[in-house]
Simulated scan of single mutants.
Amino acid sequence: MQSRFQGGAAFVRGAFVPIAEASISPLDWAFTRSDAVYDVVHVFEDGFYRLADHLDRFAVSMRTRRLAPPESRAQIEAILHRCVALTGLSDSYVAMVALRGRPRIPGSRKIEDCDNHFMAYAVPWIDVIPKDVQARGAHLWIATKPRVPDASVDPTVKNYQWSDFTSGLFEAQDNGFDSAIVCDDAGFVTEGPGFNVFIVKDGQVRTPDRGSLHGITRKSVLELCGMLGIPAAIAPVRRDELEDADEVFLATTAGGVMPAARINGTILGNDRPGPVSLRIKDAYWQQHRDGTHRTDVIRDA
């Protein structure tokens, strides 16, 4: 069975299918209106990392966007385990998604006419910044187009509204950079496509207080800073502070703690990952090896 699911496994409309067979209706508002919320957790050496935290955040996102698929939290968790088990993967990227659904009455604009539904999938491990790029330090472009305002789209609800991020990626790739960081229209740093941003200045760590998802890896970084005795804060970060930082690193479920080496035309340190970034990165992966925040994958269900 694992050979059938080796590219990934998905749960769609009550059935487990190979990832290549997973689909939704083109009339689903999740597709036509980006009317969905999601969350992502990773599996490292047969164990979920901070699964409860991801399920908590997913529940809040669903409540905020008035999405109520029929599956209970316990059922959702069991589905995630089963998706991973079907793939046979020991390291995996695992997503859970709540979708608005297709209106039962064609052409209806009433939200209550849609039956919400849940889907999930597990695929091989994903690094949003490839490991070789992490090793030399990511080169990051500061996007010229601003982040969608928090008042318009709540960034603490994990969603598929990526127009601002995609525009930033266009610019980054056009200019030979690895990824982009997006600022708001007042010039304050927010986040990037799929990651939180941290700066290090004079030994102190700071991450933006606006325009950003409350990342689970971000939470881990702040906790680790406390354990390591590194001063850290959630506070405003101006664009010029980003460019003048001693170090910059990124944090995401899809890759962990990922150091940067260049911001636009600015070379950080010696054009390599900085010592504070590497210390936090090492501590983050040591937590994984120690089994901290681990939930073993259930494979015999």
Results as ranks from 00 to 15, higher is better:
residue 1 M to F: 11
residue 7 G to K: 14
residue 9 A to E: 05
residue 17 V to F: 06
residue 18 P to F: 12
residue 20 A to Y: 03
residue 29 W to F: 13
residue 31 F to P: 01
residue 36 A to H: 06
residue 36 A to G: 00
residue 37 V to L: 06
residue 38 Y to N: 03
residue 41 V to A: 10
residue 41 V to S: 04
residue 45 E to W: 04
residue 49 Y to Q: 08
residue 54 H to C: 08
residue 55 L to N: 09
residue 63 R to C: 00
residue 67 L to M: 07
residue 67 L to S: 05
residue 76 I to L: 12
residue 86 L to N: 08
residue 95 A to D: 00
residue 97 V to M: 14
residue 99 L to A: 12
residue 107 G to H: 11
residue 116 N to Y: 07
residue 120 A to E: 02
residue 122 A to M: 08
residue 124 P to Q: 13
residue 126 I to N: 02
residue 128 V to H: 13
residue 132 D to A: 15
residue 146 P to G: 03
residue 150 D to K: 00
residue 151 A to R: 13
residue 151 A to S: 15
residue 154 D to I: 02
residue 160 Y to D: 01
residue 167 S to Q: 13
residue 170 F to W: 14
residue 174 D to W: 13
residue 175 N to S: 09
residue 202 D to C: 02
residue 208 P to M: 12
residue 210 R to V: 06
residue 211 G to W: 02
residue 214 H to C: 12
residue 222 L to K: 10
residue 226 G to N: 12
residue 235 A to Q: 11
residue 237 V to Y: 04
residue 237 V to G: 01
residue 240 D to Y: 11
residue 241 E to T: 12
residue 242 L to T: 07
residue 259 P to Y: 06
residue 260 A to Y: 06
residue 263 I to L: 15
residue 263 I to W: 09
residue 263 I to D: 04
residue 268 L to S: 09
residue 283 A to P: 00
residue 298 I to A: 09
residue 298 I to R: 12
